[in-house]
Nucleic acid binder design. Structure first.
Lengths: 340, 340
DNA sequence: AGCTGGCACTCGCACGGACAGAGTGCCAGG
DNA sequence: CCTGGCACTCTGTCCGTGCGAGTGCCAGCT
């Protein structure tokens, strides 16, 4: 239908205007700023229908209309094309991420870059341990009965854990332990690590068994458990910009960001197909995220997802632009990490 | 003088009342809430003098008085005793920090604890690399021409760095490199590391020299340079509580916190004697910190300072309580890190 | 049918004046 | 040197008004 179609154009125009001005938008302003080819009166009729359908709402009688979560959803799904990045933005991405020294550095730069491109809070997940494999295990004695076990994954993560031992250790024990662990685990996916422990215990010389058991238990416990996945968060200062966007205050949101676990769940639940995922307002099903949207995507190489990254901002955000930025950054990061 | 003395009591009362109520405090309220033994009229005279001397000011005619930075300074220096922590707080500290697994964990818990105790933003510096010594160096090959060098310090820090090599590497080279580096650097203070490089190069077999040079250069560059010192920051949600405390907005402050370098300077410049340092408002000499105070102290063992920790909050804060919390937490952390 | 211009209506908000309350400075008296 | 009293100043608040934006509806036009 022609009606239907124009009504959607009206919705798109409302979203665009409201995102850029933060003022409820009225029929007259719409007719002026967008070539819809019809008069304000007609637009009003369309708006009445859109409101009826729940896509827009008016804060109070005789103010303009504002998109609802449902309205944004429709906009994202059917009315917006992912905006290509400008040449300057592409260059900025390259410049920003080139010359990173290690994983920590790459992710730190990524989060700053993303925050800067989108003017929102940026979140980057460290490559999931559960999808990583062991590259090397190092064991260092830090006290007579204490070991520091360092795990280096093929994704570049370096994780540490102190293990308390019941008996005193000598240098040879430690060296043997190290080589045992490495032969047993090298190249193994971390999810498979737990399964290898019995074998390892069998092959270990008897006097080392308690030690091996303690260390592998610690490894499995801390490194394979979910929740050990880390986040880098940046750009929280951007929250303070649009104070009007977060009615109560931004305190609950800041708390949720520090909590990490909430955000982690949002960021890590990414589509494996590499599509950008958008969660709008209530869809996040978390009180602190009232009025907030999350745009996230997985990053990694073609054959392997490493983790997720994304942004958190007010529902009133530039979805096409932010989706493009998130996707582009994820691609670059995947590329860089693949090469290292 | 009796006058002088009472005038200071008045100042103390003003600071205390203003901190707890956030309202400019007037002579009448002061006389009611504090047993100063004199009438409001007399207090008014004292207040006039205090204002003359620059310790207090009135936001506008006929509002109460508010302490100036100078007033807080005097309060901290001469009018307040460090408030002892309650038993509950001591228990909370122990409970919170016990059972930490490694350095990362200890510092993470510390920052949450401090934020919770003080209701301010908490900042904890990782043990300074420049005051740490090498416990172990690990070298792992991650690509044909790429090495991951992992440094483990005696303070429990684990730092990584990727080094690009000009020539292809084989397994034996890497093993030899590892043992060379460890014999050369083990136990050495990181500040002395640079000095040991020439010796190391002399003892290295010729075919490894370029490699050794590259790796040690990278080590010195990234690990000894200042600026590589890391911070853990937590409790930013607390900033959103007293929005009134940060007039413009809290954006510049959030930016400064993300900047890290600014805060790092403030936190790391601690008194070696172990005294709690308080910087009030303008004393911080940084625009973003207008209206903010920093309470910091060094932590470490008796014979060695490791780093600094502290809090950042509005000038209108509970100095005695926060100073006590910061000091107590630093002591516990020092203790824990000494034992590991 | 569907669009359009016109019109009456509804609110929120900004402006302005009046008012109450808090707090001060000063002064004369104890 | 302190105190009670008093006049003064200022801000925040409340209320009433007017304006403007925006809407919904209707009759007429294409």
């Amino acid at each position: 239908m022609a009606h239907e179609d124009r009504r959607l154009q009206v919705l798109r125009a409302i979203v665009q205007d409201f995102v850029s001005t933060n003022d409820p938008v009225g029929s007259k302003a719409l007719a002026e700023r967008h070539d819809l080819g019809v008069s304000p009166a007609t637009i009003r009729n369309d708006m009445a229908v859109l409101e009826e359908q729940g896509y827009i709402t008016q804060p109070h009688t005789s103010a303009g209309r504002v998109p609802t979560d449902k309205g944004y959803r429709l906009f994202v799904d059917r009315l917006s094309a992912v905006k290509p990045l400008s040449a300057a933005e592409r260059r900025a991405i390259e410049r920003f991420l080139d010359g990173a020294l290690d994983l920590h550095d790459v992710l730190g730069r990524t989060v700053r870059l993303l925050a800067q491109l989108t003017h929102q809070v940026a979140v980057v997940q460290y490559p999931t341990l559960s999808r990583s494999a062991v590259r090397h295990l190092e064991v260092v004695q830090v006290a007579t009965t204490r070991l520091l076990v360092v795990l280096i994954t093929d994704t570049g993560r370096v994780e540490q854990r102190v293990v308390e031992c019941s008996a005193e250790l000598d240098r040879d024990d430690v060296a043997e332990l190290r080589s045992l662990l490495n032969t047993a685990f090298a190249g193994a996916r971390l999810t498979d690590a737990a399964g290898k422990v019995p074998d390892l215990l069998d092959t270990a010389p008897p006097h080392l068994r308690p030690l091996v058991a303690a260390v592998s238990a610690a490894l499995v416990e801390t490194l394979v458990e979910p929740g050990e996945d880390r986040l880098v968060i940046g750009g929280t200062a951007n929250l303070a910009r649009g104070l009007t966007d977060f009615p109560g205050s931004l305190r609950p949101l800041l708390e949720a960001l520090e909590e990490q676990v909430v955000v982690l769940r949002l960021i890590s639940e990414v589509d494996t197909g590499g599509a950008v995922l958008v969660r709008i307002g209530e869809e996040n099903a978390h009180e602190a995220l009232t009025g907030a949207s999350v745009v996230s995507v997985g990053y990694g190489t073609e054959d392997r997802a490493l983790g997720g990254l994304g942004i958190v901002g007010p529902t009133r955000m530039d979805y096409p632009g932010n989706m493009a930025a998130v996707r582009a950054v994820a691609r670059y990061v995947g590329q860089i990490l693949a090469g290292s």
